[in-house]
Design a protein around this nucleic acid. Sequence first.
DNA 1: ACCCCGAGCCGAAACGTTTCGGGTGGAGTA
DNA 2: TACTCCACCCGAAACGTTTCGGCTCGGGGT
Lengths: 356, 356
Amino acid sequence: MTTLKDLSRHLNLSVTQVSRALNGYADVSEATRARVLAAASELAYQPNLSARKLVSGRSGIVGLVLQGTPASMTGDHFLTVIGGLSAEFSRRELQFVLHMADPEEDVIEVYRRLIDGGGLDGFVLIEPVTDDRRVAYLAQRGIPVIVHGRLFGGPAHAYYDIDNAEVGRVLTRHLLRHGHRRIAFLNGSPQRAYSEARRRGHVEALEEAGLPFDPGLHITASMDEKHGLVSAVKLFSGPAPHPTAVIASHLKIARGLVQGLSALGLRVPDDVSIVAHDDQLSDLAATGFEPPLTTTTSPIYDSWAPLADGLARLIAGAPIPAVQHTAAVDFVERGSVAAPRNERPAPRKNHHGDTR
Amino acid sequence: MTTLKDLSRHLNLSVTQVSRALNGYADVSEATRARVLAAASELAYQPNLSARKLVSGRSGIVGLVLQGTPASMTGDHFLTVIGGLSAEFSRRELQFVLHMADPEEDVIEVYRRLIDGGGLDGFVLIEPVTDDRRVAYLAQRGIPVIVHGRLFGGPAHAYYDIDNAEVGRVLTRHLLRHGHRRIAFLNGSPQRAYSEARRRGHVEALEEAGLPFDPGLHITASMDEKHGLVSAVKLFSGPAPHPTAVIASHLKIARGLVQGLSALGLRVPDDVSIVAHDDQLSDLAATGFEPPLTTTTSPIYDSWAPLADGLARLIAGAPIPAVQHTAAVDFVERGSVAAPRNERPAPRKNHHGDTR
DNA sequence: ACCCCGAGCCGAAACGTTTCGGGTGGAGTA
DNA sequence: TACTCCACCCGAAACGTTTCGGCTCGGGGT
């Protein structure tokens, strides 16, 4: 192992000066700096992280702590996430590591150990929940942390988030524009901030159109196929009037939904219009649906760079408000929306007076 | 952050003695040790890993370095692996981290940085290939590493492996015992040591029975459904004689195989007998097949503990030969093997004299 | 001639831990 | 009494780095 001392001996310089040359300080002549750099690469000098950390308090390592399988990323996608973050961090001269916490152990304790042990400089935190204890703990200790998603209420924190309210607004407005009035919303878990944000946008769009929000049409559950399937049955097998359109908060929900609708003999978009939000993480593709799904979309892999960037800046001392970024979402119209039935030439039956 | 100095002040003891008490040295009275332990837990003392590492050369962190998605663990299973290892290591007071290497970068360089930076004490290495450069590098530098699987040839290394030759032997013998003589073997990539070991066991069993090994019946490819499907077509759609039994090196191969056989109108086990090896990692279950598959099995999750254990011992100074463990495999007979067609009451046709 | 200033360099302290080589005091032995 | 021995304890050095304060040297201004 080459150390600074080795280099300084080799170059007839003081350890101090070698260190300063390597770290880009001003008071070292260009000639010296060049010599030092050459020697460093020749001797394959690698700064000792432990020593550096000991004195400077920085290890250059950031991490992601997981306890149990994160809901959003089943399958291969998980490696995509880790790989994406890892690549972005190494681009910024930071090491990124994943730590799986023992499910038995209090995760706060894990963070404490990791921090006090002097190991990690900062954290990426995914899938925050309301009143997230981890965020609270890290904020209180002043440890740099950037959250993928956002917490409302609780301590201020750095985050990268997409404009979830806009997701709700855009999707709802699109359906309204096509004449839909009874719109169901298959949303994610109410525990999660993004679900609430999307609901808010949804309600706003309804209000713009002078329509009331019907809580009975807003169903929250974990974002999986089951949610879509179960909700389809709930919404469309009961007594009329049924919704004429459905918003799915995730492609997986949409998938369960179309399966359910198909089993109930309902066609998309003739009988029911569907829109969804697409994070482009799952192996489902909006274009793989029949018909292709009209969606808002914001590729989750667009978030690695801002997350890494944000955490790097945080560690470098940036104030929290400077590291809060909300990304816009795209809207892509495909073939899963049509005008509702009752807007089109009405079928003859059921034609007796409706005096309401 | 509580330091040793804080504790020593608090207790009116020297830093030395506190350290020794905490680390279980003999020359500290039980009374003192108890006091120290109490104070440590009261003040939430956490040894500073960087400082410890700096002087002792140990960080207590071990890692797994991955470059690209490992072939064997698609899907959720990946987290199972990481989680399993992580849990076992933390049980042994070691932190386990995952590092995803930039696919662009030489992975050796990544190891070098990790080691010279003073970060990691040792590594788990999965999916070794023949003449694995990583193993060679780590061995040459004397860095503790335990391999999941085994390399033949190359430097000696610590490993945990299953008895793959036995897999080949047991599976082949079982088929032989049922009267099969033309046995195909859908094996894994020839790059991988386990494939070769299984082939060896296979050949041995054949030789025991006085049968020659037919290279035309041994097909190697990556262990996925495609392999099974493609090989099924290759083996059973060409000119007779076809094999009467097939060994699949993985449940995924078996799955592709049964799909292919079914498409070709062949039934298991009436027309073709199948056996496979089951690592119990994939979401496929041997009992989920129709008929249930006769398999050798060695749950991959049985390997976390021995791997963690081995690496821990290696770091503690155990010699490499003491950390080489080959685990036995189980054999479970289910319903996918029958006697071959020509051993059963022969159909009438094709009955003219065969004088050979 | 004097002082000042900046460029370039250096010594030493500090970070928190482990560990080596002692030290002290009291009990046991001759 | 004088010695040894053991149980228990301590000071100081070391690990490799960063950083604070200060040093020297030569050139410019007055």
